[in-house]
Amino acid sequence: MTELMPETGILSMLMGATLVVKCVLGFLLSMSVWSWTIIFTKLVSINRAKKSVSEGYELFFQASDLGSGLQLLGQTPSSPLTLLSTKAVREFRNLERADIERDRKRALVKDTLRRMLRQGITAELKRLSSSLPFLATCANAAPFIGLFGTVWGIMDAFHEIGKAESAALTTVAPGISEALVATAIGLAVAIPATIAYNYFRSVLSDVQGEMINFAGAFLNRVEREVSWVSPKGKRNGMEE
């Protein structure tokens, strides 16, 4: 009969690892679970934002006037452009009600709206990029955390070699292979996090560009189309 070979699978190596290495592996596993949760969540939210911003900008750009453009944007309340335009209109209303002479208001309106749109873009990007720093942390830290587990495991393996007073491969290999698993798992955590982080940053850069284009188009239309009070007493373009 052939001799039964000892178990050399990944699971058996993990079970035979030292307590410190097991703690490192558990920590890496928790990082991986949270990292993948963020990846799947952001895949949905960021790609949805990119689509809504791109479509919203096209609708606004093709609208016949400012009021029509705002109404079209209002059909998708969750769009970043809808949130941007809502904040801008609110600021316009506040400036309109301010106790400032009319000529001064005309001079302030574009700068005020520009600041509000810039703040709105910053706020939307911050919201969309929330949790992405954790992916960057995983990408940078996970390999070193795994390496720490590997170094600790190798130290323990050499300690066991010293106690056994034997440097045979059969004595050295199990402990070192168990330790190297930590580095492999660290890389398995870091690589997807790195790819996802770079992808999301690229998409967010596109979203930012579209929002900046929208802000420019919005300001141009305000400057061309909006008067403080029309001859009939109604406001043009930004009616509530």
Rank of each mutant, 00 (worst) to 15 (best):
T171G: 03
A167F: 11
V172T: 03
F144I: 09
F134N: 07
L180D: 10
G153F: 09
A167L: 14
P143W: 03
A168P: 02
P174S: 06
A141F: 05
A142E: 10
D156N: 08
I176Q: 04
L147S: 05
N140Y: 06
L169H: 00
I161G: 00
A167N: 03
W152C: 11
T137N: 12
A184F: 11
E160T: 07
A157R: 02
G175I: 13
F144H: 03
A168E: 13
E160W: 07
F158Y: 09
L147Q: 04
K163C: 13
E160K: 03
P174Q: 08
L135G: 01
I161N: 07
I176P: 00
A157I: 12
E178C: 10
L180E: 12
I154S: 07
F134A: 15
A173K: 02
V172R: 02
I145G: 06
L135T: 01
F148P: 07
G149L: 15
L132D: 06
V181Y: 10
T183G: 13
T150F: 12
W152S: 01
F134Y: 11
L147Y: 04
A142F: 04
P143E: 15
L135K: 00
G153T: 05
V172Y: 01
G146E: 14
P133H: 03
P174R: 03
A173W: 05
A157Q: 09
K163F: 15
A184Y: 07
E178A: 12
A167I: 11
I145M: 10
A168Y: 08
H159K: 08
A139D: 06
C138Y: 01
S131C: 14
L132R: 00
V172Q: 05
L180W: 09
L132K: 00
P174K: 03
W152I: 14
F144E: 08
E160H: 05
L132Y: 01
D156V: 10
N140V: 11
S166T: 04
W152Y: 13
L180A: 09
T183S: 14
L169M: 11
G149P: 02
P174H: 04
P133V: 04
S177V: 14
T171H: 03
G146I: 13
K163M: 15
L180K: 02
W152R: 01
I145Q: 05
L180H: 04
G175Y: 02
S131H: 07
A168S: 09
A136W: 01
T171S: 07
V181R: 00
A141H: 04
A173D: 10
G162D: 08
L180R: 03
T150C: 12
G175D: 12
P133S: 07
V181H: 03
A184W: 07
T170A: 15
A168F: 09
G162W: 13
W152P: 01
T137Y: 11
